[in-house]
């Protein structure tokens, strides 16, 4: 076959990007009051870039919302505020601390307290309060096996619940965004991306990430074979002496339950290389420790294994 013009080459990132932009524009067009969840983590940083590509030079047709555990890495909050300022978009902060103060949730206590589970209530309350009917999030199908079947438009009933059997079939690039009053949708534009795609995209688009993603020296303490940042948010057992170490973190969010790994990786290539390499030694050395192999599992899913 002879073709008249050379074919335009679309890479997998081009295709995934175009799909995600399409999804964002569909949400904006079909839902009344969408909001984009922005944590300062790398997946939501990718969402912000996609929103720029979808709507610039116009404004975003939705505000950003951070569900703030109050236990943040200072670097992440600094990044969040700077990025929101640069974009000139509106940020809504939904605070877990406020949910606690208002008695909507009960704070856990003790050294193993975490605010992770409390976030859901804060999110749902904020959606109701602001009348948001769609939350755009950065979750991906490769993160967990159970997500492999989740739809891109994922419907919640009046109680914010997900019923796997009531999900709508999604064909071609046709998304049905119709809902009744009181119902909500979660929308996952990067559902089909893997951890590796995200890193490749961050590299290609030269996106800046909060400094905690790369190796830096920090006061940490060790628990269950994991390193945690020493901070006012975490109560330490008497034996848990803090010490200084080179580490990096894999997620932002609640400082009290985000484990760090010893690392000297200062570039994306080094981080990705390290994730691939560590898991082999980790296996041999620390199998007995559930916590660590769980973390290893998490990393693995993130990197596109399943």
């Amino acid at each position: 076959m002879t073709s008249k013009a050379p074919l335009v080459h679309l890479s997998h990132l081009d295709v995934l990007e175009a799909e995600a932009i399409h999804i964002m524009r569909e949400v904006a067009a079909e839902l009344e009051r969408p909001v984009l969840l922005f944590s300062g983590g790398k997946d939501s940083i990718v969402l912000l870039r996609l929103a720029e590509k979808a709507f610039r030079p116009g404004r975003f047709p939705f505000p950003l919302m951070h569900v703030d555990t109050g236990h943040n890495f200072p670097e992440a909050i600094e990044y969040r505020d700077r990025r929101v300022g640069e974009l000139g978009e509106r940020l809504v902060v939904a605070s877990v601390q406020e949910s606690i103060d208002r008695g909507r949730v009960v704070e856990q206590t003790g050294p193993r307290a975490s605010r992770n589970q409390l976030q859901t209530t804060t999110l749902l309350d904020a959606m109701t309060e602001h009348g948001f009917d769609a939350a755009i999030g950065g979750a991906r199908r490769d993160e967990e096996r159970s997500r492999a079947k989740e739809r891109i438009f994922s419907f919640r009933d009046d109680f914010g619940q997900w019923d796997p059997r009531a999900q709508r079939p999604e064909l071609w690039n046709l998304y049905n965004g119709r809902i009744r009053k009181g119902e909500q949708v979660r929308v996952f534009p990067i559902s089909n991306w893997t951890e590796l795609d995200v890193w490749q995209y961050v590299a290609r688009e030269e996106l800046e990430l909060p400094a905690i993603y790369f190796a830096h020296e920090r006061e940490v303490f060790e628990r269950d074979g994991m390193l945690y940042a020493a901070s006012e948010f975490v109560e330490r057992y008497p034996t848990e002496e803090p010490f200084s170490e080179w580490v990096r973190f894999r997620t932002v969010g609640d400082m009290s339950c985000t484990g760090g790994v010893r690392s000297r990786a200062e570039t994306i290539a080094e981080v990705v290389g390290e994730i691939a390499a560590t898991r082999i030694t980790e296996r041999g050395e620390t199998r007995a420790d559930d916590k660590v192999s769980e973390a290893a599992m998490e990393d693995r899913k993130r990197l596109g294994y399943f």
């Binding site: 997998h12 295709v15 890193w199």
Partner: peptide
Amino acid sequence: TLDHAAFLTDEAAATEL
């Protein structure tokens, strides 16, 4: 195992889906 760093080259980013 796969060499993931090799996937951060320009060629790798340009593969098709």
